[in-house]
Design a protein around this nucleic acid. Sequence first.
RNA 1: GACGUGGUGGCGGAGUGGCUGACGCUGCGGUCUGCAAAACCGUAUACACGGGUUCGAUUCCCGUCCACGUCUCCA
Length: 482
Amino acid sequence: MSLRIFNVLGREKQEFVPIEPGRVNMYVCGPTVYDHAHIGHAKSYVAFDVIVRYLRYSGYDVLYVQNITDVGHLLETGEDRILRKARQAQSVPMKIVEDYTRSYFEDMDALGVVRPDISPRASGHIPEQIKMIETLLAKGHAYVVNGSVYFDVTSDPDYGKLSNRRLEEQEAGARDTVRADEKRNPEDFALWKKAEPEHILRWDSPWGEGFPGWHIECSAMAKKYLGTTFDIHGGGIDNIFPHNECEIAQSESANDAPFANYWLLVGSLTVDGVKMSKSLGNFRTIKDALQSYRPEVIRTFLLTAHYSNPIDYSDDALQAATGGWERINNAVRLLRRTMAGAPQSEAGSDFLPRVEEARRAFIEAMDDDFNTPRALAGLQEFTRDVNALLNSGQPLGLAILTAINAVYTTLGGGVLGIVGQSEAASSDGQREAALVELLIAMRAQARVNKNYAESDRIRSELARIGIVLEDRPDGTIWRVQS
RNA sequence: GACGUGGUGGCGGAGUGGCUGACGCUGCGGUCUGCAAAACCGUAUACACGGGUUCGAUUCCCGUCCACGUCUCCA
């Protein structure tokens, strides 16, 4: 079995063959940092997080680059998003950029998203962008007008190959913009924009003071860190046009080499059936979501749909994800508790083939275009059998328990990021645990005395503060309700 | 309008040319329990509509309807 990926470029599932065996160079379009990240960002970056984690689990040496856009991403009005935010917040652009970059990483860390290896900023790569623009000019793919530089889409016969757009078809419906008169063709896009006096994000260039267009940063930075041709380019489907299309046009025209071999685009996220977007103002931030649901539950929710499909964020769906996540984690908790008192033996090892089957099914699902819903389903089926085993009363040695735990730790934890590596215990947690154990002992005494009124009172009082008790044949265990 | 994706049970959401259409959630019944909880077992009227191809289609093709996305604001 080998990894197969749905390549948006060509729209077919293909066997994944990296340029250099064992290595994967990967670029994912990052956020424009002018506001807090929303759960749509979470969907995208959790998806690529799992993809990177799985590639690494599969043995690939992955170099993961994800940019931070801090300049050049204009609004329809021609105003820079970051400048507008700075004006609204009565702040300065680079402070806005810094604040929201930190906020972004804070959110990603909270969601357990492994950080990219390189997080280059557009504003830190102006020379690289200028150089690429000069190359495009020299090759006749771009032209200068009034201190701005535009890419001539008619110079690239492949323009439109990713999003399946033909120039002829576009022209009829092309929108007139304020600056259209500067362009030779309506579809031409800015590589460099002349800065008006009020535009304070500005740099010197061969064409006067200005700032880079939005698309050129990705081309320039991908080239700098990954080379002219790299393996995987990722992003959100909503950026397929124009952004991704323009990236390809610029890079391939400038480098005379293919840009990315595989394009993976993530489906959008809606909230209660409506598309969420910054401009509509109906977006839920990741910080909002984390108020209501724990990070692993949010990840579980996002991974129940295939990355390329859209997903709808609703309380019902998150509740269902909570239930599914708890089922797996209840099993893991029971497993680890059983391990703590298990003998060093091979007892119960006839379950080992089932463990191997679980791993095999998981790999098969993930090898099929990172099919996390199927991988998750396999883990759930495995959990059913694990629960049955753990509750069967038969003696279980450390060997089999360790093997089961490894599945949860490496696949549920290491790849999907929804299972903890161990039961974390802070010092506060230890004190809390000791107190709960004390109450459990008191309740046990009451039960021995058949004083059920008292034992039930303890149980319901604990439940009120979110601690759930479970009486098992070998004693009472407890957990914090999520 | 163009391009693209999709319409699966009470909900979310996989998947397949024929074998009982996963998995999770929810509901109901059962086992276990002092009672619960957790877990396990069982169960519930699902493949938008109309044609076509085929021995046979939910799965392939065409059309219709609907939903969503993109068409230089967005991961």
